[in-house]
Simulated assay, not measured.
Amino acid sequence: MATAIWKKIAGGEIDPVYLLTGLEHHFFDATITRLKKALPDIDDASIIRFDLEETPVEMVIEEADTLPFLEERKLIIAGNASFLKAADKSKEKVVHNLAMLENWLANPSPTAVVVFIAPYEKLDARKRITKLMRERATVIEAAHLQGKDLTIWIQQEAKANGSAISSDAADLLVKMAGESLLTLSSEIGKMATYTAGESDITPETIMNLVPRTPEMDVFKLTEAYASGRVSDAVSIYHDLLRNGQEPIMLTALIASQIRLMIHVGSLRKKGYQQSQIAKTLGVHPYRVKLMMENRNAPSEDRLLIILNNLAGIDYKLKSTSGKRERLLELFFMEPFRK
């Protein structure tokens, strides 16, 4: 949806009102960047910004209806449109004239482009203003991308940067860099510059240029420990400590990985396929693929023992003032304690 709207913007089809909603702020920044490029004489200094948690919406409307001075059209960014979500009215700092906004949406200013940003997971669909905004504004849902949608987005982002990437390489990139679109966009841009359009972004390029995330190392640590490879687990653990990771956080991340392994195994027994498991659990298919391909994966009973033991380690880490690093190290050196 976003890419189709971006193409229209690049082609000069710019609508008077946009609504950007969701949790992926990269979509917000990318849309504003494209609007700046498409609107003549607009730069960062000439963008007019409002925070709707501090400013009533009628000030946005008044600014939009005031003729621009040097530009053909103004670009107005109205952030934190909290009146579109369910909220505690007792905590609201500003009272908005929503009736005025409703009337304005029926006939928005032709000399302004107003972008309302609602950086929330859900909007209150019961509200009249939310319904009208969805009907009359151009809406971009900045939803968290997963699975095949994320892979397609990565390939489109690579293409926009003058390069290309296979689906397998895109999966590896997610494994290395995580699922944040902002981080992925930055890494894709860096690799596209490195290849300079002369070659695709390959797994080798990714391994050489993309720094590993702590989550990736935790995945390797968990897999090594759960498979009984004690020396590998201890080695990875020491690397994580040297990189500044805390034992309490690592314990929580490992427990999360173990729970995921249990869920994957359970759904697999029920006949779920890789894509179905990923969708059901809300994780990237590549993580599911790695778990399903692990021939040394322990049984569910052993995973439950590990999870129970991790709960004990977590309690000790939070109740002791001693050398916490040693507690978790001893845990890795004695796998599957009952």
Rank of each mutant, 00 (worst) to 15 (best):
E24C: 08
A30N: 07
V17R: 09
D29C: 00
Y18P: 07
I42H: 01
D43N: 15
T21L: 02
T33W: 00
F27H: 08
L52Q: 11
E53L: 12
K37M: 09
T21F: 00
R49H: 05
I48L: 13
A38V: 08
R34S: 14
K37P: 00
S46K: 06
F28G: 00
P56H: 10
K36I: 08
T31I: 04
P16W: 01
I42V: 14
E53M: 13
F27K: 02
T21Y: 10
R34Y: 00
I47A: 03
D51M: 07
A38M: 07
I48Y: 00
S46C: 05
S46M: 03
E24H: 02
L52C: 12
F50Y: 13
A45K: 09
L39A: 01
H26K: 01
I47D: 02
E54T: 14
T31F: 04
D43H: 03
L23V: 15
I48E: 15
I32D: 04
D41C: 02
T31P: 01
P40G: 01
F50G: 11
K36N: 05
T33E: 15
I48K: 07
I48G: 01
L35N: 09
V17L: 13
I42F: 01
A30K: 13
L20Y: 06
L20K: 10
A45I: 06
L35S: 08
E24M: 03
P56E: 11
R34D: 13
F28C: 09
D43I: 06
P56D: 09
D44W: 01
L19G: 10
R49N: 00
D44V: 03
T55A: 07
F50K: 05
P40T: 01
E24T: 03
L39N: 03
I32T: 06
T55D: 13
I47V: 13
L20F: 07
P16D: 12
F28A: 03
T31N: 03
D43L: 04
T31K: 05
P56N: 07
A30G: 02
